[in-house]
Design a protein around this nucleic acid. Sequence first.
DNA 1: CTTGTTAAATTGCACAGTACAACTAAAATT
DNA 2: AATTTTAGTTGTACTGTGCAATTTAACAAG
Lengths: 246, 246
Amino acid sequence: MLAKKTVARPPAKQRTPAFRLPFTTVDVVIFTVLEEALCVLLVRRPNADSEPYPGKWALPGGFVNVDIDTTLETCAARKLAEKTGVASPYLEQLGSWGSVDRDPRGWSATHVYFALIPAKHIRITKGANATEVAWFDVNEVVEAADLAFDHSTILATAVDRLRSKVEYTSLPAFLIPEPFSLPQLQRVYEIVLGRSLDKSGFRTRMLTADFLEEDSYLEGLSNRPAMGYRLKDRSAPVVFPRTFGR
Amino acid sequence: MLAKKTVARPPAKQRTPAFRLPFTTVDVVIFTVLEEALCVLLVRRPNADSEPYPGKWALPGGFVNVDIDTTLETCAARKLAEKTGVASPYLEQLGSWGSVDRDPRGWSATHVYFALIPAKHIRITKGANATEVAWFDVNEVVEAADLAFDHSTILATAVDRLRSKVEYTSLPAFLIPEPFSLPQLQRVYEIVLGRSLDKSGFRTRMLTADFLEEDSYLEGLSNRPAMGYRLKDRSAPVVFPRTFGR
DNA sequence: CTTGTTAAATTGCACAGTACAACTAAAATT
DNA sequence: AATTTTAGTTGTACTGTGCAATTTAACAAG
C-alpha cells in the first residue's frame, strides 16, 4: 500500500489510502489572568445547521490543513495568532483526544495545546468571519461543563495540568505582562491555585530560583513602590525542588 | 461541508471529506527493567521495499483502524497487548507528533503512549506475522538514535518524561513484579535515574507516602529476609512533595 | 558452635527550605 | 502629623532529607 521507498521529502501529492482516515484537528486552550480570575478564550460555533454543535461555545481550533500547516505545533500557533494576535506565547502540548464518537461527523482525533499569555498583550480579533470570541472565567466554564464536543473534558484536564505544574514551576510568570512585582506574581499564583500563599516563603523561593532579573521600580500602582522584575528566559519555566505547602 | 446536524451517534459510514486528511497512527513506548537496565520494546519494520524504513527498528504501533478502534487509548492498549500479552499495564499518554515530513507517505500525526510493565509478566509474542520483537537497553538505543521515522526523538522524550516523573512519583513500582522489597524498589529508582539514592531517606519517603501494603517476607533472595510490599492502588502513581536531592 | 560476611533495617544528627508570625519601611490618605 | 496600606524583612519552629554509623537477621566457613 502507498508505495514510496525513499526517506526523503514528502510527496507533493498524497495518494488516497485504501482505508478510511480519522479527521485530524488541533485545539488550543488559551489562558490568561483578567480581573483577578483565571480566564480561557472560547469561540462560538457557527449557527449553520450543517455544523456540529451550532451556537455552542468551544475551544479555538479546527482541522489541520495539510497544504499550509507543516507541523502540529505551527498549526496551533497559527490558530492562536489568528484569535489573539499574540506571536510568541508560552505554548505547550497538553495531549490528544480521539475516538469514534467525539465528533458527529465521524472518527476524529484532536491534538490539544495550551498557551499562557499576559492579558495586556491581547487584542481579540473579531475577525473578517465575524466569529464571536470572548474570555470566560475558567471556574465557571468548568462548572457549567457545557462546551461543544468533548471540550469540557479537555478544558478540565488543562486546568488540572496547569494547577499541578504551578505548584512547582514558574509558569504563572507567563500570565502577566512584564515588568511585574513579586506581590503581583504571588497574586497570580494564588488566583490559579485558589488558595493563599505565604509571602516570605514565596519571595525566597522566587529569588533563589534565579530566573528573574531586576527592572526599574514600579511606582504609583500601590502605596509603596515595588521592585519590578523580568524573566531571564522566556522560553521555558523554572522547576522548583518542592511544591508549595498546605 | 460534511452535512450532519444531529449531535447523536456517529454515522456508520463517514463521507469522504472535501479536503485531504493526515494519516493517524498510535505508537507505544513500552518500558521494563531487565538485568539491571531500563529497556524498551522495539519491532523491526518489514523488509518490503514498499514500506518506509524497511528493516529498521521502530516503536510498536501503526494506523488507527476506524472500524475496530473506538478510542486512541484502547488502540494503544490493543497494540501493547498484541506485542506483550500484558492486559492492564500502567499506560499514560506521552504526547503527539505530527508534520508533513515525518512519514514519507505523507502528512501524518502519531499519538504516543508510554507503558510500564514488570519484566516477569511478559511473553514476547513473535506472532503470526513473524514480526521481530525484542528488548533493547534504553541508553544504547537513545545513544544510537537510529530508529525509523522520528521514533528516536519520541523515545528520547519518553525517557526524559519518565526520569523527571520518577524524581517525585512512585512510577518505578510499576516496573517490577509484586511483591517487592524496598531495596529492590530503590534499585529500580537508581537504574532509571542513573544515580544512587540514600537508603534511609528512601525508606522513610516510601513508607510515609502510604501507598504500599505489607505482604509476606521475601526469603532466600538475599542474606537477611526483606519485607515484601504490594501497591495499595495500581491505577495511579503517588506524587511526593519533593524531588530527590543532589 | 563460634566467627565472619552480607544485606536489611534503624538511629542520630546536621542541614535546607518552608510555615508562621511579628516586625520594619515607604508611600498615599486623612 | 497621624493613619492606613502595601512592600519587604526578620526570627523561630518544623519537616523531610542527606549522611554516616549502628543494629539485626540470615548464611557460610572453620
